[in-house]
Amino acid sequence: MESEAFKKAPVIGVSIATSWEFEATLAYYDVDESECISYPYGEYFFRTIAGKRVLFYSTGVRKVNGVGANQYMMARFPLTKIIVAGTCAGIDESFAVLDIIVANRAVQYDCTVKEVEPLIKPSFIVELDVAAYQTDFHTGTIGTADRAVVMWRDYLELKDNAITVADTEAGAIAYICQKNGIECIIIKGISDFPTDETGIDPVQSNEEQINVYIANTPKVMYKIFNDYLTRFV
């Protein structure tokens, strides 16, 4: 049983967006239903990793849920670091499905009028210093927007702007971590790459991509937890 002092000790948060990602997390850590606690954005549970108290919580998808859930957890617990763990869409073709990327830059690319402004404004770029950790991992830029990268034209636009991977939460979470003075680490695994839907029913193309994503999600989460998480805790 945890002592009262341990319960008040600093906490490291692990932010997980989708239900499939959180289900994979529950399975990996063999979490009993009685261990999960509900809160406005989902559920959370605790584990001790490398002698540190770690809080795993689901947030729901897109930027509003990601930001709201993480700000809630910052207010509720003495978080010293937030690790955003989950899946992403691959953009840079030098990487492959199931590759893990530790972001050294997070950007939001849906905050401008892109017809007359740069796609990415400097005010929405967060530089992430991961040099203090072991460096035997891939780094890159994660791009975040509420619109998921499904359409081929979106993929090409991000590729032209040197985005490595893309999701719908991490850049916004990094942004509010910076505002709150809390370290943010983003560990993302590529679950799928957008496909050229030219000449194909877009609905069918989207369904096929979602099926690939669902199949690869537990594989990505296992790699993150098994091979990466401990070094960043």
Rank of each mutant, 00 (worst) to 15 (best):
M221A: 01
S19L: 09
F46Q: 00
E183V: 08
F56V: 03
A172E: 02
Y109E: 10
T112L: 07
Y155E: 05
K219T: 01
K8F: 07
A85V: 03
D30I: 12
T141D: 06
K114R: 12
T168G: 00
E157D: 15
A106T: 08
G171A: 06
I173F: 06
D154H: 15
I163A: 02
N65A: 12
A106Q: 02
I16A: 00
I91C: 03
L98P: 02
W152N: 09
I49C: 08
K121A: 15
N104H: 13
A162Y: 08
K121V: 00
E157L: 15
P40H: 08
G13H: 09
S34D: 12
A17M: 11
V84I: 13
I37E: 01
M1Q: 04
I125N: 01
L158H: 04
E197C: 11
F45P: 03
D227F: 06
W20V: 05
V220F: 07
D110P: 08
E197R: 09
P78G: 11
L158W: 04
D192F: 04
V102W: 01
F56L: 07
N216T: 11
V203I: 13
Q71Y: 13
V126Y: 02
D30L: 12
A69R: 03
M74D: 09
V67D: 06
L98R: 11
T48P: 03
E35Y: 02
V61G: 03
T164G: 05
I214H: 01
V130H: 07
F56D: 05
I16V: 12
V97F: 04
R153E: 15
Q204R: 13
P202H: 11
Y41R: 01
F193W: 03
M151L: 14
D167A: 06
S34P: 01
R53C: 08
E157R: 14
D192S: 05
P122D: 15
K223M: 02
P194E: 05
G86M: 03
L79N: 08
A69F: 05
W152P: 05
P40R: 07
G66D: 10
R153W: 09
T139P: 07
K81D: 06
D30T: 13
K121H: 15
K52G: 08
D99Y: 10
M73I: 09
C177F: 08
G60W: 04
V14R: 06
Q209R: 14
W20G: 00
T144F: 06
A174N: 07
R105L: 09
T135A: 14
N226K: 14
Y213F: 14
Q178L: 14
R105C: 11
F46I: 00
S191C: 07
E33R: 11
D192I: 08
Y28R: 02
E2F: 15
M73N: 09
E197D: 14
I173E: 07
